[in-house]
């Protein structure tokens, strides 16, 4: 198995692990971590694809590599925004869960009046 296929498989598994974590972890901070794991999986897959495209003395296809750098920066920005939002939520409500919604935004409460 060559490096591209190996890391391609790792990438697919990282996406799966991250998805599972994102779905079942109750804490938003853990969801943010899982989001980063999925993102790394996607990036690693792109990296494996770039590595397959090595040619003309370039060890790897440079176009995906350049896009990956942009992608990493975008993922970092997303993480920073999500963390700031979570901290503010914690500061405002003292809780860091996503699930407990106040009755005002709860349509079933409105529906059962």
């Amino acid at each position: 198995m060559n490096a591209a296929d190996l890391f391609g498989v790792v990438a697919a598994l990282l996406v799966g692990i991250g998805l599972y974590g994102l779905i079942v972890n109750p804490q938003p901070l853990r969801k943010i971590l899982s989001f980063n794991v999925i993102g790394n999986g996607v990036f690693l897959l792109f990296g494996a694809i770039a590595y397959r495209g090595a040619a003309f003395g370039l060890g790897s296809d440079p176009v995906p590599q350049a896009l990956l750098i942009t992608g990493l920066v975008v993922a970092f920005s997303a993480t920073a925004l999500a963390v700031a939002l979570l901290l503010r939520l914690f500061e405002a409500t003292g809780s860091d869960t996503l699930s407990s919604e106040p009755p005002a935004a709860n349509p079933s409460a409105a529906g059962e009046q």
Binding site: A3, F7, L44, A66
Partner: peptide, 10 residues
């Protein structure tokens, strides 16, 4: 891993 995939910039 990136080094192994010749992505030193990454």
């Amino acid at each position: 891993a990136w080094v192994q995939l010749s992505g030193i910039d990454i």
